[in-house]
């Protein structure tokens, strides 16, 4: 359940942004959790809601975008879709895939109130 640690890291980023930008409350938190990021989105949402009370995230809408995974298939010399790390190449059926996208976990944007 590392999503609780990740939620705490999100809160730290929010507090650091608040120190720079001088806002009191987050109305909407937009995250990006790629399909290959190793994050369970349901658990992350639960963790964020659990730590929110009494913080700048209290009452915030939580939006989590989940971009699909992408990988480079050396055999096909092509970029292909990859929904999970155990997937084979959809073109050639081989497993020599190197993930190239969808592995990021980022705080994208905050809608804030002073």
């Amino acid at each position: 359940m590392h999503e609780m640690s990740l939620a705490a890291n999100v809160l730290q980023l929010v507090d650091a942004a608040a120190a720079r930008e001088g806002f009191a409350q987050v109305r909407r938190l937009t995250l990006e959790a790629g399909a290959l990021a190793g994050v369970e989105v349901r658990a992350l949402r639960f963790a964020l809601e659990a730590i929110a009370p009494g913080t700048r995230l209290d009452g915030a809408d939580i939006v989590i975008d989940e971009p699909p995974g992408q990988a480079w298939c050396a055999a096909c010399a092509a970029t292909v879709a990859m929904a999970a790390r155990t997937d084979a190449c959809p073109r050639c059926g081989g497993f020599g895939l190197r993930p190239t996208g969808g592995s990021a976990l980022r705080v994208v944007e905050l809608l804030v109130a002073d």
Partner: peptide, 19 residues
Amino acid sequence: VSVPGMSAERTIRLEADVL
């Protein structure tokens, strides 16, 4: 614990890696 306030809304682009 922090103390919430009330006022106008604005958007802040962070693009920050959670880790």
